[in-house]
Design a protein around this nucleic acid. Structure first.
Lengths: 134, 134
DNA sequence: CTTATATCCTAGTTATTTACTAGGATATAA
DNA sequence: TTATATCCTAGTAAATAACTAGGATATAAG
């Protein structure tokens, strides 16, 4: 299940996109509009910087800027950055290693299939699709 | 994310199906084959009984029996019975109520769409699809 | 150079959930 | 009567979730 990390990160990015291309938006404003604390948003923003989705500007009039236009950022990238993974089961995650029951497990391919439809969906939607037209 | 409840419940049902139609299988055997404790399986079995997927026979030579043939039980029913829900976000779950931000939330329809592709996938696979042919 | 405003970074904290285990009650075939 | 099952309720240790707290660092403006 997607936790507040992924959900808030997505709302934050959409909020940035709404303020216009290349806008430099401080978290204080996002926090107010979205009803999420600045401190929590800071942590999520840092994950999005690591994933090359945002860049930051420090000091007064500083804030965060989307690196790419909304059409070129898909939701899957945001969720994977915030959540670590969108995999529906632990055995599909990168750091899980190879399950010792893998060869005899009748369910593994089922979970792989579920993962595929999830990835296809989240990677098929861009931030631009979620920003309401003005 | 799907927890051990859903994953083990699915493996248990597939294990029942492998023992043949209408077979009455005690959890002791499933536990041994699957490497899961009887005590934990008991709890999962009771969820599957409530969902009309299994019925039980008490006493010696007792066990559990699949109510319908494997072709007629889909994986979605098993997962929803074990996990409570397959919804990817809390705001889509039945007991969450209506989110106060719902009307202004730009992400709600995105999550609804994700939920739809997940439900379509899990409801499109039956237990029979996962039982290896003998 | 000072001040206000931001981001940056690390820790700590509380509540919930997960993944079980434990102990017994109840039913029933032999 | 006994052995073998399911049934039912609690309890518990560990992990995760969802934050909060406190300060360090950078920088524009006066």
């Amino acid at each position: 299940m997607i936790s507040t990390k992924g959900r808030y990160a997505l709302r934050m990015v959409i909020d940035f996109a709404r303020q216009g291309e290349e806008a430099c938006v401080p978290l204080r404003e996002v926090a107010e509009r979205q009803g999420i604390s600045v401190k929590y948003l800071e942590q999520l923003a840092s994950l999005l910087i690591q994933a090359d989705i945002l860049r930051s500007v420090r000091g007064p009039h500083g804030g965060y800027v989307l690196i790419r236009p909304p059409e070129e950022t898909n939701v899957g990238d945001i969720l994977r950055a915030a959540e670590g993974s969108c995999a529906p089961v632990a055995c599909l995650e990168a750091d899980f290693g190879i399950c010792p029951r893998r060869s005899e497990c009748e369910t593994f391919s089922f979970w792989e299939g579920l993962d595929k439809v999830i990835e296809a969906y989240v990677d098929g939607v861009t931030v631009a699709d979620l920003v309401p037209a003005r």
